[in-house]
């Protein structure tokens, strides 16, 4: 099976402070994404989790080609996209194939656009649809997302949170993309609405043959929706594997603390230490130390002198930790 999307050692470094002239000091870089490799298979939902500042938002902007890469490759449908400048990707043929559902639908719909305008925008620009063809595609997308057609003339502020989320999804699926990035699509919603939106996304995935990258900090939701999950810490992947396995038997100490911190209604709480303190600085991090070292509850001296690489633990699981042991 060929992957729909494959990232190869993807890196993104942002310069910080005054760089170059007139300052003589060497420029510093925030290592937002470092050496990230992953693959998304057709029809798969890949979860992307991690704390704020772990680089998942930057990674999303790289994959959606809103941002130029510092290094590495992005293979999409066997085509290398990283070499296309983000500036030019707006008119690229694959623009229609990689779309995104934004975190806050209220904020990601232009407040001066009606729902119909918002859904129409990519159809007009990317597919060149006009008139009746445009109209019918807008209505098709709206109906697929359970958005009543009489709401199409409304502005975002006249819609409820759930309705706005549906507009955001309708806009994203209108161009019939292959890959959809879902950036915390239910974070702004109440639980009662969240469920319907999650189920809608699940239905759409099957009906339209989509692949998802699902970004969320709500591990419970990730677990329910995702086939596989990637856990990031300070720009690097620390653990990846089948979603259920990773949440039931996390192998990386960071994943263990992350899973243990999730509030749950009942059931035994996994025993793992709390993560105290803040992550270390992402500016010019020591290339020879584990990024989690210092905050890690189990770290040893070796972690400060040797960056752990992702190791295969079988069953599709990879963990970047010197101390990790196989499940069971």
């Amino acid at each position: 099976m060929t992957a729909l999307l494959e990232l190869e050692n993807l890196r993104k470094h942002f310069p910080v402070g005054r760089t170059g002239w007139p300052s003589k000091a060497a420029p510093s870089f925030v290592h937002a994404v470092d050496d990230v490799s992953l693959a998304v298979q057709p029809g798969e939902t890949l979860g992307l989790v991690g704390e704020s500042g772990c680089g998942k938002s930057t990674l999303v902007r790289l994959i959606t080609r809103l941002l130029d890469v510092t290094g590495g490759k992005i293979w999409f449908n066997r085509r290398e996209l990283a070499e296309v400048p983000a500036r030019l990707f707006a008119r690229d043929d694959d623009r229609a194939h990689i779309q995104m559902v934004f975190q806050d639908a209220g904020e990601s719909i232009n407040p001066r656009f009606t729902a119909a305008d918002a859904i129409a925008d990519p159809l007009r620009r990317l597919l060149g649809l006009r008139g009746a063809a445009l109209r019918s595609r807008i209505e098709e997308a709206a109906l697929q997302c359970g958005l009543p057609l009489e709401l199409l003339g409304r502005f975002p502020h006249q819609l409820s949170g759930g309705q706005r989320a549906r507009v955001g999804i309708a806009r994203a699926i209108g161009t019939r993309p292959r890959l959809l990035i879902l950036d915390e699509p239910t974070a702004a919603l109440d639980v009662s609405v969240q469920v319907t939106v999650l189920k809608l996304l699940q239905t759409l995935k099957v009906d339209l043959g989509l692949s998802y990258i699902f970004v969320s900090h709500d591990l419970n939701v990730v677990r329910l929706l995702c086939d596989r999950v990637v856990v990031m810490y300070l720009g690097r992947i620390v653990e990846t594997g089948p979603a259920r396995a990773v949440f039931e038997t996390p192998l990386h100490p960071y994943t263990r603390s992350l899973v243990a911190a999730v509030p749950r209604l009942d059931g035994p709480r996994p025993d793992a230490p709390r993560l105290v303190g803040d992550p270390r600085s992402p500016i010019d991090p020591d290339p020879n130390a584990c990024r989690f070292y210092g905050r890690c509850p189990v770290g040893v001296a070796r972690c400060g002198t040797e960056m752990p690489a992702l190791r295969d633990f079988g069953g599709g699981r990879d963990v970047a930790c010197h101390l990790a042991e196989g499940p069971g």
Partner: peptide, 12 residues
């Protein structure tokens, strides 16, 4: 409606 550690999407 609360996604607990035990449910599946269908059971929500």
């Amino acid at each position: 409606a609360t996604p607990t550690a035990a449910g599946s999407l269908a059971s929500l």
